[in-house]
Amino acid sequence: MSMFAIFNVSGSAVSAQAQRLNVVASNLANADAVAGPDGKSYKARQVQFQTVPMGGPGSAGVKVQTVTESEQPGRRVFQPDHPGADGEGYVTHSNVNPVEEMVNMISASRSYQNNVEVMNTAKSLLLKTLQMGS
């Protein structure tokens, strides 16, 4: 019964999108973090999706392949009285771009909803198939 494979496919997509949402949440939470004692600030993270074959032909799920860190330089703010300031009086903030993260969040949330809807439809179809002939 190939309809049951829909739950695997959409389930993998839902969990991948949830991980993407998780990464967005940690990026947004650390948007204003400054460099720690080691001088390294938080780097924005991003997930990389990859297709995984699931059973029969044409059935393809998703998984998060890797989580990459952005190599862009952190935001530098002139704050000489800050305890984390360097020799020139600059504080290095994280390189998170909040606007990009919000866009990423909306996209992940829409994809999540789409896949949940697919699972709901598949479930109601399967339930109706179960009552066949009655």
Partner: peptide, 20 residues
């Protein structure tokens, strides 16, 4: 129909996958 439903579900699941 159920086979096509599965193919379409795969497409929706991979809407954000690069190169799919």
């Amino acid at each position: 129909r159920s086979q096509r439903q599965q193919v379409l579900a795969s497409n929706i699941a991979n809407a954000d996958t690069p190169g799919y």
